[in-house]
Design a binder for these strands. Structure first.
Length: 315
DNA sequence: AAAAGATACAACCGCGGGACC
DNA sequence: CGGTCCCGCGGTTGTATCTTT
């Protein structure tokens, strides 16, 4: 409905933030909290709109933000999660503590997406017979399995709810005052690495001719994909660049800034990209994925133990 | 050494939707 | 119940930096 009037008409500053502005914003939030973003700039004495302040804080100044290059583990997670939820950057970011949705989105668009395109695992045109198209057929199977599972869960939920609703609620939602339905970190990954993922992968492998032996991604291959090597100081110039543009992030004490070298990252990525193909995704499948997100959400809202229910759902 | 092109990423824009009145 | 406010999200743009020619 109604939308807040755009705040760019009142002589407010736009563009890159200066260190001085950053300091004002950080100092204000640390002593007062952000409160209403709309009124924050005036209260803090900034010539910015609230939206700009919120963006600067959430994407750059927040003390819990993890800077530096994405680790191989994080890249694998992003690829896996993107295969599950599509361009739901905030959902993906929720599974990667310290990473912002904007950062992940940029990393995807500038690194991972291009690489997938180059490898032919991602196609702008959905109506082709490429591996990406084949993988999207996997999604149809996933969707079918999901619907079946949902129906089963629905029945189980009904039973469980009437039998011991209070007990179930206590198990699944011990922190009653916390905002509901926020998936905990690694939730999707645990789902994917659980029997649910196994079941889906088996289904996909047995039902599609395109499924090559190596396309059956396993937990073992996922683990094998994660290698660790001493990081080079490859990011120094990037960090200094950030400072030059006034975007120097606050240093977080104890934050591990390590990363793999490009070669290592590429190795990991190759495996991960294969995983991506196995699971089947691409921007073209967003509608379908959206449905899956909805399905996951509906599962969250169940009073059943989510993992247990999902694990049994595909049996 | 300089220009052109490519890349990376911070920041902006506009929309959807929940909360509040 | 409809209108307004506000926040969060995803897509896009702008620009600094790097690489190539």
């Amino acid at each position: 409905m109604g939308r807040a009037p755009c705040c760019d008409k009142s002589g407010l500053k736009k563009g890159p933030w200066t260190p001085e502005e950053d300091k004002i914003l950080v100092d204000y939030i640390q002593s007062h909290g952000h409160g209403s973003w709309r009124s924050l700039p005036k209260l803090a004495g900034l010539l910015r709109c609230g939206k700009s302040c919120r963006l600067r804080w959430t994407n750059y100044l927040r003390p819990d933000i993890k800077r530096g290059p994405f680790t191989p583990e994080e890249q694998t997670s992003i690829i896996q999660l993107h295969a599950i939820v599509g361009n739901k950057w905030s959902t993906i970011a929720a599974q990667l503590p310290g990473r912002t949705d904007n950062e992940i989105k940029n990393f995807w668009n500038t690194h991972l997406k291009k690489r997938l395109l180059r490898m032919g695992l991602l196609h702008p045109d959905p109506s082709d017979s490429s591996p990406a198209a084949a993988s999207s057929r996997h999604m149809a199977q996933w969707e079918s399995a999901r619907l079946e599972a949902e129906a089963r869960l629905s029945r189980e939920s009904l039973f469980a709810h009437s039998a011991s609703a209070a007990a179930a609620a206590a198990v699944t939602n011990p922190a009653v005052n916390l905002p509901p339905l926020k998936p905990e970190p690694d939730f999707f990954l645990r789902i994917w690495n659980s029997e649910i993922g196994d079941a889906f992968r088996k289904t996909a492998a047995s039902a599609t001719d395109e499924s090559s032996p190596e396309s059956s991604f396993t937990r073992q291959s996922s683990a094998a994909a994660v290698k660790t090597e001493p990081p080079p100081a490859a990011r120094e110039e990037t960090e200094s660049k950030s400072c030059v543009t006034g975007g120097g992030p606050p240093v977080v004490a104890g934050m591990d800034d390590s990363s793999g070298s490009n070669e290592v990252v590429d190795d990991v990525s190759e495996e991960s990209y294969q995983l991506y193909l196995d699971f089947g995704s691409g921007d073209d499948d967003l509608g379908l994925f959206g449905g899956q997100v909805g399905a996951f959400s509906s599962l969250f809202s169940s009073d059943l133990n989510v993992e247990t229910s999902l694990d049994t759902a595909f049996k």
